[in-house]
Design a protein around this nucleic acid. Structure first.
Lengths: 203, 203
DNA sequence: ACTGCTATTGGACGAATGCGCAATATCGTC
DNA sequence: GACGATATTGCGCATTCGTCCAATAGCAGT
């Protein structure tokens, strides 16, 4: 196969791993799968990554990080905490693509067996929570939110969205994507002491 | 090893599989593990089950079903909807054991790729939601809960608990088991229009 | 054109997996 | 106590896994 610059090859390996993971799941993605997807030999993968665990962690991290940054930038450019919170619900992963959230499901399950995946998953979840907590604190300071425990509120809102999205992606029935958005928003209004419908108007 | 009646042996195999899964996780449970746990040969497992997949599916279904029935019976024998709800939070799986919830994580991730797992997972999740919805309707009727949408409220409470427990089991930090119980209960109080602390007193 | 660096190859290795099968042990029945 | 049915054994087979390594091939700088 063509000789690539190291940074390009690393990207190619990660991209190939994601292509396979999308088809077979993160847990079932093997070194040989990745090599075959790229059309190269399997030894090449270990020339760039210490272990398969690391490949999967980096692959997962790439998509998850991109989603996080997109939400973060949309929230940062919003006009005030209420609009930022609305932007959060609008851009949170499951809204636009099921497969990205399926990757989260895979990562959560694999975390118990793959240290690198667990570290990445935990780091990104903490980042999401921090993003929310910061917005909530800003809203409390601005007088538009009421919360005695911004950190806990952030965990509750994040967990609710994850739990609801889980039902949609894993089971694909009874709950719809629009239910997730609507219910999560109304729960947030309740949690943060906003008048019902506030978030819907700002979305 | 002692010669057992077929139905007893099947039970013993499933029990052994669960004992191993408790230690290593369901995905990492092998035929030889199960045999060693029972103190028998590995061939015996295949004499009773078509495949290892079937063993794991039955094992998962057994614990999940048992947890559900235990909660259902505790809730049914409770004194009124408030006590029933408190019983739900008290007996819901992640509260007492991490490993059972790891089974759920595995199941949710695998659901996308294995129809049999998805069917079982969906059925049991629906049962949990139904259990909650029934309790909420009873509470609304009795005048102790306020809810315009009992079905949605049940999904929100269930999803919140799942999402919080997920953080505990998958990442093992930042959030503790007691946070899950406390936060879920207070969110339920908010959701169902109960005075704060109501559930803690009934727990 | 030559040379040094390294990206890439392709297979070997050991460990682990699910599964199948002939041989053996053990029970209930007559 | 002998016999038939079958529960149980113990190992072999083919695959697959992650990892490693010596050999090869291709590019950059002189």
């Amino acid at each position: 196969m063509a000789r690539l610059r190291p940074s390009d090859r690393r990207d190619a390996i990660v991209a190939a791993a994601l292509a396979v993971a999308r088809r077979k799941g993160l847990a079932a993605t093997t070194v040989r799968d990745v090599a075959a997807e790229m059309g190269t030999s399997s030894g090449l993968v270990h020339h760039y990554f210490e272990s398969m665990d690391e490949v999967l962690a980096v692959a997962f991290s790439r998509v998850a990080e991109a989603d996080l940054e997109r939400s973060a930038s949309e929230m940062a450019s919003s006009d005030g905490p209420v609009a930022a919170l609305a932007a959060f619900f609008r851009t949170y992963a499951p809204a636009d693509s099921d497969w990205a959230f399926q990757l989260w499901l895979d990562a959560w399950a694999e975390a118990a067996r793959r240290p690198a995946v667990q570290a990445t998953s935990r780091r990104l979840n903490l980042a999401w929570q921090g993003l929310l907590e910061g917005t909530i604190r800003a809203g409390v300071e601005a007088g538009v939110f009421v919360s005695a425990d911004p950190a806990g509120a952030a965990w509750r809102i994040l967990s609710l969205v994850d739990g609801l999205a889980l039902q949609v992606v894993a089971h694909g029935t009874t709950i719809g994507r629009d239910d997730v958005a609507r219910w999560a928003a109304s729960a947030a209004e309740l949690e943060l002491g906003m008048p019902p419908g506030t978030l819907a108007q700002s979305g």
